[in-house]
Amino acid sequence: MYITEKKIDVRYAETDKMGVVYHANYLVWFEVGRTDFIKKAGFNYQSMEDEGLISPVLDVQVKYKQSVTYPESVIVKTWIDQYSKLKTIYAYEVIKEDGSIAATGKTTHVIIKKGSEKPVRLDRYYPEWHAKYLELSEK
């Protein structure tokens, strides 16, 4: 399985009054991991958006296992959990410095033309991206 890793230093602003990372920031970390995964696969969201396509999140699942506090660092591991021409499900693990898992999650995405709600097929718009994702999801 192809897995990328992205280090994130916890910023003080990401914590609540108890000094614990606020739960919604894990979703930001998932996005950081996902965009890093896409970049390391050889692609980027910006070129897609320049062509009038966007990739909204349809579903998010997060399981919180341990607190993360400032000034810790974490590693966000990202991989493709499921892939089809119309939908990609990314999976994530947020790993603490001691190697324990702080959170796990998944996000589900489609690609649509801006102003539309109908998904488009990745293989028709980006055949190279589709081929790479097939390869990466099979590993």
Rank of each mutant, 00 (worst) to 15 (best):
A102R: 09
I101M: 14
T107H: 01
K113W: 08
H109A: 03
K85H: 06
G115K: 13
T88I: 07
D98K: 09
G105D: 03
K106C: 10
K87A: 05
L86P: 04
K106D: 09
S116K: 07
K96G: 12
G115V: 14
L86T: 07
K87C: 01
S100G: 08
K85T: 03
K113C: 10
A91L: 04
T104Q: 04
E93V: 10
I112C: 12
D98F: 08
D98A: 09
I95Q: 08
K113L: 08
K114D: 11
V94E: 12
T104E: 06
I101N: 13
K85Q: 04
S100K: 14
S100A: 12
K114A: 15
I89L: 09
E97I: 11
V110A: 06
E93Q: 15
E93F: 13
S100L: 12
G115I: 13
T104N: 00
I95M: 10
E97W: 14
A102H: 10
I112A: 11
V110L: 07
T108C: 05
I101E: 13
D98Q: 10
E97V: 11
I111S: 01
A102D: 10
K96Q: 15
A91N: 06
A91Y: 05
E97G: 13
S116R: 06
K85L: 02
K114L: 14
K106A: 12
I112N: 14
I95H: 08
I101S: 12
D98L: 08
V110T: 08
V94R: 09
L86H: 07
T108K: 03
I89F: 09
A91P: 00
S100H: 10
I89R: 06
I101Q: 12
K106W: 10
V94S: 12
T107M: 01
K106Y: 12
G115C: 15
E97F: 12
S116P: 00
I95S: 05
Y90H: 11
T88D: 03
T88V: 02
K113Q: 08
K113R: 15
I111N: 02
S116C: 07
V110D: 05
L86V: 03
L86F: 08
K85A: 08
H109N: 06
A103L: 04
T104I: 06
G105E: 00
I111C: 05
S100F: 08
K96S: 12
V110S: 03
A103W: 03
A91M: 01
A91H: 02
I95A: 08
L86W: 03
Y90K: 07
T107I: 00
K85W: 01
K96A: 14
V94M: 15
E93M: 11
Y92R: 05
K87W: 00
G105P: 02
K87N: 00
I112D: 13
K113Y: 10
V94Q: 14
K106M: 14
L86Q: 04
K96T: 12
A102K: 06
K96I: 11
I111Y: 01
S100C: 09
T108G: 02
Y92Q: 05
I111P: 07
I95V: 14
K87G: 01
Y92T: 04
T88C: 04
Y92N: 04
T107R: 01
G105L: 05
T107L: 00
G99L: 07
K85P: 04
A102T: 10
